[in-house]
Amino acid sequence: MFQFLLKRFGVLIPTFLGVTILTFVFVHLIPGDPVLIMAGERGLSPERHAELMAQLGLDKPLYQQYFNYLIGIFHGDLGVSFKSQIPVWEEFVPRFKATFELGMSAMVFAVFFGIPIGVLAAVKRGSIFDHTAISLSLTGYSMPIFWWGMMLVMLVSVHLNLTPVSGRVSDMLFLDDSNPLTGFMLIDTLFWGEEGDFIDAVQHLILPSIVLGTIPLAVIVRMTRSAMLEVLNEDYIRTARAKGVSRWRIIMVHALRNAMIPVVTIIGLQVGSMLAGAILTETVFSWPGIGRWLIDSLQRRDYPVVQSGVLIVATLIILVNLVIDMLYGIINPRIRHKK
């Protein structure tokens, strides 16, 4: 296990360096001058422009800028936002909590519904339920997120008036700063909010979670279904039946455990694409998360924010996949014992 982890972390370092180079190069390839964008329509004199460029360190050659950036990272300094003058890490943390909360509840939604639906579709193969599940998941998978989000808002929030339109909590909601707030609305409102605040936070979370969870849901349904179909044909399922094991137990214990191996892989991969989906979902629902933060910073050519933001996100995805790899060992004894 230790060797396995060591190997994994060995891969992490080159990946990490690669990400820094890519984000740095791409951000600087985008035309546009952060100083001019900050100045806005008023414009500014060439002298003042040069002075600001020097102040931000943008007058140096690109390779030098890159090395300064890299050295900063290794000192734990991710840079300071051009716009807010706040260190990137400090800007990142609260926004990440918002995204994390949204992503987790979207994933819970996808897994909670996806696996049972997939199992049922496989068990009742060829039935109306199976066909419905398959075609709906294809529809869900091919639906543009922003369109789906807006349609849901129109229907559920505007016409039926069931959930709020946007944001994490209602504007009127007030949480006292003197409490040890975690930044996760569900937790904060539950422990320190007034009566009804928690419900309010949940209501705000429902629609964005459904929107963000739709694609993972569709993928999990299909993957679970096909994995189950494959496993149910295996010899060991026949053995279990010959032992007199009940049908329910065969499906839930003997088959599902084996079918979970590819499904867990897919869930891990979905975490990455969910961050992409979060950008659109957060835009539609005005969710103050990293998706919106990165898009806004990119439009302002806020180089440090974009570079470091992408770097953190990439590192997170790598770490998630590392956790998934370790999960395999728990699910599948064959991987655990491989030397």
């Binding site: 295996e234 010899d235 060991y236 026949r238 053995t239 279990a240 039946r241 010959a242 032992k243 007199g244 094991v245 009940s246 003997h254 455990r257 084996n258 699910i331 599948n332 004894p333 064959r334």
Partner: peptide, 25 residues
């Protein structure tokens, strides 16, 4: 039938390597 199968009448199969569930001891 399930009470009889596996108890009073049992069966073993051709390929033992795939007839045991890989996820359980």
């Amino acid at each position: 039938r399930r009470r009889i199968v596996g108890a009073d009448v049992a069966m073993i199969f051709q390929d033992p390597m795939t007839s045991l569930n890989p996820c359980f001891t």
